[in-house]
Amino acid sequence: MASKLQAFWNHPAGPKTIHFWAPTFKWGISIANVADFAKPPEKISYPQQVAVACTGVIWSRYSMVITPKNWNLFSVNVAMAGTGLYQLSRKIRKDYFSDQKDDVASLEG
């Protein structure tokens, strides 16, 4: 166990390096998005969430081809793509599908 901790500590992408801490703080973006799940869809920014989702997808690949390979960066970007796509789905549902419901309701009214 001690040797495993030591291996982790001294890893080229371990906690002594920026390769560990940059992805770790990038989780803040996904956490911020999760916190914003509670906000109304009107406040979601299309450009920002498209950037979050696309960056998450492309960076999942980038994480695997850099030296050192970075699984932390990979996992944070998968999560980022997921939260970005969910936020976009909330906004799109609100903007493009609830109008139909409103129209139906107004027709009924």
């Binding site: 920014s45 450009p47 920002q48 498209v50 950037a51 979050v52 696309c54 960056t55 997808v57 492309i58 960076w59 690949r61 980038y62 081809v65 850099i66």
Partner: peptide, 16 residues
Amino acid sequence: TTHFWGPVANWGFVLA
């Protein structure tokens, strides 16, 4: 390579 496209995607944040 994705060494190019990763940063290009990130420019999306700047534009956004």
